[in-house]
Write a protein that binds this DNA or RNA. Structure first.
Lengths: 220, 220
DNA sequence: AAAAAATCGTGATTTTTTTCTCAATAAGCG
DNA sequence: CGCTTATTGAGAAAAAAATCACGATTTTTT
């Protein structure tokens, strides 16, 4: 969840985190052939003031049109340019379990310019068998794949006991970004971009809010 | 990602978001039989000062021990009490696709007190077949299950075309919290707690950081 | 028993993020 | 064409979050 990397500390983190959500909303509007969208409409999806939306958008450099709002298509493209998701990013995925398979088949990744090039697993039983439109490869093929396809990202959906070892392997081969789904905190060098997803964190926060709202109903 | 609910606006959102991660780290330390942990050690996992960690922890009311730090077990339990994850929360899961199956088998949820009670899917072909240790149920069984088991949470792993409809159904039956994995923004009443996961947002941010770090290497 | 060391807890300060306010702009309309 | 309206953009103000600074507390060492 947190990029442990101080390199990029000087940009508005909170703003940045909202931007992919704008893109998601804009994609939906584009499908409905909406031409314009206002900051007020976008603010409706978040707990923030509409001014904040305009500040976020100004980060990308895109300009709106008074009285109309922002061009859905124009803003969508501006966000794509800003986030670099019109760039093509290549990834390998490690760990062909249920979560790995879910990611392989997840429609959303392609929308964000992320292409999974190959899938690896340590389990000899799985190697060679198909998952999505891939055949699962042995880790021994990893150096060749990384070199041939100029892979930038490794997605880790391995069990947490294996995660640090796989992380070390891929960073040693020059991978510059790790997207970690295993529920533990990996340690990586300062030059590696690390992003941790913690699915259970979502469960924990829901639990907290539920508890709070129950107390509201009972208490004063 | 954002709870659209203003009810709880008066607590430190950013602090709260870090707390589940502390719990994750503490669980690892507990496995290693570590007795104490310092705020400095915890700060090493985040981009924040160690003082901030102490502020976060003080939210839970737990007190550390000068010179030693915090008791791993004690703090872990305090966080569990604070988040309500020692409470037992019950959920139904909608959409027995790859992602749904991954969640059903995800070890972490039980750690956070979330028990999935039943799994539903609209697809007649799937109904009756097993997934994990569940049999997939028809949505027609939903009212009975919700009443019998006092279900609080609905987990939505359905395709985005179906998500709003399912959301409306379950909230009409009294579900008070929605954990949405479909890549769209749902609309819900003010009394429903909504948490959106956007897996692709992680991809978008990685892409952004990768682009930035490439520019660093090329530019001044 | 006193001194040193490590670490917490918290008030003060700084920085970041969000909201408030309002002038400027473009569109629609009489 | 000028008036009205909706909406942006941006500077000022407020609120929230993070860091700094330091006293308090406990353990270890001498």
């Amino acid at each position: 969840m947190y990029a442990e990397n101080k390199l990029f500390k000087n940009l508005p983190e909170q703003y940045l985190k909202r931007i992919p959500f704008y893109h998601q909303i804009l994609s939906e509007l584009a499908l409905k052939n909406e031409a314009y969208v206002s900051s007020r409409y976008l603010a409706g999806f978040f707990n923030v003031d509409e001014t904040q939306i305009r500040k976020d958008i100004s980060l990308t450099g895109y300009k709106g049109k008074p009285k109309y709002g922002y061009s859905v298509q124009g803003l969508k493209e501006a966000i794509e340019a800003y986030l670099g998701i019109n760039y093509h990013n290549t990834a390998v995925l490690f760990g062909a379990g249920k979560l790995g398979t879910a990611l392989i088949e997840y429609e959303g990744l392609a929308d964000y310019g992320l292409e999974i090039i190959a899938v690896f697993d340590n389990n000899p039983v799985k190697i060679g068998s198909p998952v999505g439109h891939f055949n699962i490869l042995s880790p021994s093929a990893l150096p060749r794949v990384i070199r041939s396809f100029d892979i930038g990202i490794a997605i880790l959906t391995v069990p947490k006991t294996a995660a640090q070892e796989v992380c070390d392997q891929v960073t040693a081969m020059g991978i510059k970004a790790i997207w970690n789904f295993a529920p533990l905190q990996l340690s990586v060098g300062m030059d590696v971009i690390l992003r941790n997803e913690n699915l259970a964190a979502g469960a924990a926060l829901l639990s907290y809010y539920l508890k709070k709202s129950n107390h509201r109903q009972e208490g004063p």
